[in-house]
Design a protein around this nucleic acid. Sequence first.
DNA 1: GTGAAAGCGCTAACAA
DNA 2: TTGTTAGCGCTTTCAC
Lengths: 325, 325
Amino acid sequence: MDVARRAGVGAATVSRVINGGQNVSRRTMAAVQKAIEELGYHPNQAARSLKGARTKTIGLIIPSVADPFFSTAAAAIQEVARAHGSLVLLAASDNLPAREQEQVLTLIQRRIDGLILAPSDAADSSMLRYAGFPVVCFDRPFPGQTLPTVLGDNYGGARVATEHLVLSGFKRILCMGGDSKLFTSQKRVCGYRDVVEAAGLPYLADPNVQDYSSAEATLRSHLQGNKRIDAIFSIKNSVTVNAYKILRLANIDIPGSVALIGYDDFELADALEPPICVVRQPVVDIATRAAEMIFEALEKGEEQRQTLTLKVELVHRGSCGESRI
Amino acid sequence: MDVARRAGVGAATVSRVINGGQNVSRRTMAAVQKAIEELGYHPNQAARSLKGARTKTIGLIIPSVADPFFSTAAAAIQEVARAHGSLVLLAASDNLPAREQEQVLTLIQRRIDGLILAPSDAADSSMLRYAGFPVVCFDRPFPGQTLPTVLGDNYGGARVATEHLVLSGFKRILCMGGDSKLFTSQKRVCGYRDVVEAAGLPYLADPNVQDYSSAEATLRSHLQGNKRIDAIFSIKNSVTVNAYKILRLANIDIPGSVALIGYDDFELADALEPPICVVRQPVVDIATRAAEMIFEALEKGEEQRQTLTLKVELVHRGSCGESRI
DNA sequence: GTGAAAGCGCTAACAA
DNA sequence: TTGTTAGCGCTTTCAC
């Protein structure tokens, strides 16, 4: 250490000064700080963590950084990390198991203190075997694993949304959107199904709608003939938006001809015409709780296996109309 | 290294195997790999970079992770990093110089290979003095520094937007929104000003509008009397949306009574009624170029000081109406 | 083709 | 109060 040499002291003394300056005389302290200043010295975190200390870094793997749901979550997580003096190593999996595995491996090599993960549907359970740090899942559980998990109540949210439509008197409710392999999609479709079946209404689901054109095709087929739908429950944000656009373009009145309710709130849901009714997930809460669980595990030294299911909220807006009964 | 012991070889051999296995016999190679497998061994990246090697990590400091502009940028940057075998350390500054400085310092201690930064308006130029790695700014330049920078053409974009309004025959154009301390806001207001002044139109700017209520107050005052505005140029996304909501709520026809044009495209700009005309910045391009500049500097060993100004694009939609002339 | 040894920058333990 | 030493896990000579 040239700081030590310049200040005319030993390396250990410099270390003491850096770490709060216990048992260092005023004079030496000042001399060392001066040397640090002059040399523009910054302690090497890598060397520190080599000694077995924490890396003060947590990993975050999400399907997409650009997705508003996950970027909001990432913001909340980075804030919790910052409050705990840690940084976030950000990685995107694109929902690809191979990519996910690759990212987990690099994070293990980085010796992160903990990992927050929104696992892909085919996440490989073996990859975390030798992780050596706490892992918390959010938004979705890890398939076939009992890892601590924080998620929104997908089943309950779908039930509430569907029940709202049923109670409003809608009879032919189409559930569309998502990816049938995805945990969240499955749960939401289940919630929808259980409610329509209990109400004796037809089960009309098209869980694989993704982009504009597939949404258009589905809607077109369901909007003609005598088996015309009168309401849509979209379980995914982008699909909700596409459905809205398609209906508007086709001059189909919302909710007069077809009601629309979506899953996940979005920025302009209340600025559309009509404002769109949605099930709102507590994104920030979910992410914050997940991050806090990591730091709790780090502080207490023990990891809990619990799954935390947070309540979702039905946001009433114009797109479901008033009760028809 | 217990992998070495288990495989009955020396530490150096293990190292060779990990790094591609040059000069290692098939047999030893296999034995070592078996030991690695059985022990669930992953090389410690910290120890590696201690030896002076790259950390394979770049830092990213943005004002807000939840902001769509920056999260889109972050996604693009993490993708470039991944393609170069690197990870992204994510930090948020909240536009607070103190926070920014704190984050830069922690990143320096992490010995990141490079830093991508959207500096706050009062960024402290001294903090990067001993950084020891390439730094690239994006979206905004570093105040008073000549760092390589990638940004959109704020001045030009504002000119194009304002000219479009002028050419369409609007006479009283209000420029609103943003934060007058912010570089991007200033440039946009300049572009607006130069165009209206050249056209002999009144300069009507309220650059400090931020939230809904301030937008409402500003609009209210400008929408009454005989000095009523007939067009709005909003230089910030959230303000554009608020302006839209306020106009709709007040039953003011867009563009019939007041035209509206915004800066930065947004998800539902084309789903609103009418669709909102905007200046679109090439977010992904900006971010990708910035990230690539880092890796170029790393590969070529030299840093260029250039500023890259990327073209923006006027997206015509209904909110500016047809030409009035 | 392989192993022994040095050293990257730091801190904890022990001496002085 | 301060300095010396050892060692964290790895890679890189340099011998063999």
